[in-house]
């Protein structure tokens, strides 16, 4: 696990040192050093997740060359974001379109799993 997450763990240590330096220099407990510290923790957590994932090369040929579902999901999320400017009622429409896109992705993933069997 450490092997695959190593770059992230190294990065997390560097950010932690920089955060400690800023804390020591500024002396502000609730100061901006917290941004660096939070990034350090997030980096270590990402390294942990990558480590758990481990190497993978096998599933490449089952991925479809064309998939419309991601574009539909993105359109749905964009409608949700635009809703904050153009009217909150669009949130429901956006979530509906997103659900359609995610449903398509699930359908593709199931087909992909069948192909690999």
């Amino acid at each position: 696990m450490i092997r695959f997450g190593a770059p992230l763990f190294g990065w997390a240590v560097m950010l932690a040192l920089l955060a400690a330096g800023l804390l020591a220099w500024s002396g502000e407990i609730d100061g901006p050093w917290l941004l660096l510290a939070a990034s350090s923790v997030a980096s270590a957590a990402t390294g942990f997740v990558l480590g758990l994932a481990g190497p993978a090369q096998g599933d490449r040929r089952a991925i479809p060359d064309i998939s419309i579902a991601p574009a539909v999901t993105a359109a749905g999320l964009l409608v949700v974001l635009v809703a904050f400017a153009a009217g909150r009622w669009l949130v429901l429409l956006g979530l509906g379109v997103m659900a359609l896109g995610l449903g398509g992705t699930v359908r593709e993933l199931r087909a992909q799993r069948r192909e690999l069997r």
Binding site: P64, S67, I68, A71, T105, R107, E108, A111, R114
Partner: peptide, 21 residues
């Protein structure tokens, strides 16, 4: 919503391949 998984069986059009490659 989505196409089948056997890529060799189809030749997607330009628009479809732009949207979903």
């Amino acid at each position: 919503m989505s196409t089948a998984v056997s890529p060799a069986e189809r030749t997607p059009g330009l628009v479809l391949s732009w949207i979903g490659a």
